[in-house]
């Protein structure tokens, strides 16, 4: 569940003009680029970075919600939440696989995450404090992610687009799951409704930040558009998300925590208050309340699992050796 615009893209590329023109012609003709096709180095690097950031986000994103599996308030909710967090792990897996087609291994990408060199969506550095947060995350965070991921299904790089199609199919239950939790809270007691409003208050702005800062005329972002890795600007997607979410909040009887939010008849959409981009950059750069903990957890999991992976590899090696010697003995 991720949706933030690429952080720190580097689309620089060094191929000659004829090569780039031929490549661009394929992109413009809406041809998909496949793993072994010739491609500009900048295209490859941008994709590796974006897909791996996306994969890391899915994996780190398992933590805030995973935190509530043992405390889910009913068996039905427990099963749904576990299945949902499991899906996010699967999404990470599909995306790592897509990035691997570009010549980078899962182990390398994992090391980049664990060393802190790679980024992931900053939304997951916000804590899930109450059960209502599980509702808000599904509704808003997955909702924002879906908004972005639907367009990525048409990304010019074949393996990424295919991974996104599978992911979008699975995502469709995530947002419904979250919104259903919110409905139950809002139809419940006064304290349940307060939980819901509190969760919305805390997750609304970080959800809007998920789309990334306005690009302005950032060269990198433009290059991503030209290569059809991305197809809409961050602001366009954010507006779409706000327009979809406001009526959903109204149905719940909840108040969006933005006093400047109002309908703009001319643009047939909502105008919203100012987003605190200082907060965004602060959290992206590591100063959210959970950043250190999220990475530490991931490092611990990696460390604790190392002996298991080693053992499985050693066993496979032994088996191959046994088969080889059995073959020699038979000859």
């Amino acid at each position: 569940m991720y949706s933030q615009g690429l952080i720190g893209a580097d689309g620089q590329t060094h191929e000659d003009a004829a090569f780039l023109a031929a490549f661009q012609a394929r992109i413009d003709a809406e041809q998909k680029i496949e793993p072994n096709d010739p491609m500009p180095e900048g295209y490859r690097k941008t994709l590796v970075r974006q897909i791996s950031q996306h994969a890391h986000s899915e994996i780190i994103g398992m933590q805030p919600e995973g935190n509530w599996i043992s405390r889910a308030p009913s068996l039905r909710r427990k099963a749904a939440l576990l299945a949902k967090v499991q899906d996010e792990g699967g999404h990470g897996l599909y995306l790592y696989s897509a990035a691997e087609t570009l010549g980078v291994s899962r182990e390398e990408m994992t090391e980049q995450l664990l060393s802190g060199a790679a980024k992931y969506s900053s939304i997951f550095n916000y804590p899930a404090l109450t059960w209502a947060d599980i509702g808000a995350i599904g509704w808003l965070v997955d909702g924002a992610a879906i908004m972005n991921q639907i367009v990525l299904c048409r990304c010019s790089y074949g393996p990424y687009a295919r991974a996104m199609i599978r992911i979008c199919k699975e995502e469709s239950f995530h947002q419904r799951q979250g919104y259903e939790i919110m409905i139950a809270l809002c139809n419940g007691s006064k304290e349940q409704k307060e939980l819901a409003q509190d969760a919305l208050n805390r997750f609304w702005w970080p959800s809007l930040m998920m789309f990334g800062p306005p690009e302005g005329d950032s060269v990198h972002s433009n290059q991503s558009m030209i290569w059809k890795i991305k197809r809409f600007s961050n602001d366009d997607l954010r507006d779409k998300f706000i327009n979809a979410s406001v009526p959903q909040a109204e149905k719940l009887g909840l108040t969006i925590p933005d006093s400047d939010l109002k309908w703009n008849e001319a643009k047939q959409g909502y105008d919203h208050g100012e987003i605190d981009w200082d907060e965004f950059w602060r959290v992206v750069k590591g100063d959210g309340i959970c950043n250190r903990e999220r990475l530490k957890n991931r490092r611990r999991v990696d460390r604790d699992g190392a002996w298991v992976r080693e053992a499985a590899m050693a066993h496979a090696q032994k088996r191959r050796a046994r088969m080889a010697s059995a073959r020699i003995a038979a000859e």
């Binding site: 696989s97 899962r106 499985a312 590899m313 496979a316």
Partner: peptide, 11 residues
Amino acid sequence: AGSIHATDAEM
């Protein structure tokens, strides 16, 4: 359908 990592065929 996609890819996975595993040490051997059964896994």
